[in-house]
Amino acid sequence: MNGPLSTATIVVALLLGIWYLIRSALDRAPGNTDLWAMLGLSALVAVLVVVSVVGLITGDRPGDVTTFIGYLITTAAFAPVGFYLARLEPTRWGTLILGVACLVLPVLVLRLQQIAEATGG
């Protein structure tokens, strides 16, 4: 796992998540800016996942490769799923969906880091 890149992902996701929670509390439906921001986060996560996959092929492999790949797939799919559901829900709840998605993403990235640190022999 690339250090600065995953830290950036976690920070951006947390900031966006707080933003969405505030917007949802203020009864705002997800606007264009909100949705584009989510797409931006998805792109950032996609870069992170690609870097991790390249790392899997070229560098050290974590001890539990299967779990790691499972988490990679989930992480990659996560923000787009949130985006899709939020598009279906043009109410405050759509904004809350974006917020929940953004707050779960850092957990996934942290889990990825944990699994990556346990390198297999």
Partner: peptide, 25 residues
């Protein structure tokens, strides 16, 4: 499955995937 129910849908989906994957492994 709409409104706040869609948020529930997302959270239940997350738990379905994470608990399922964990149990599978």
């Amino acid at each position: 499955g709409t409104g706040a129910g869609r948020v529930l849908l997302l959270v239940y989906g997350i738990f379905a995937v994470s608990a399922g994957a964990r149990a599978g492994v």
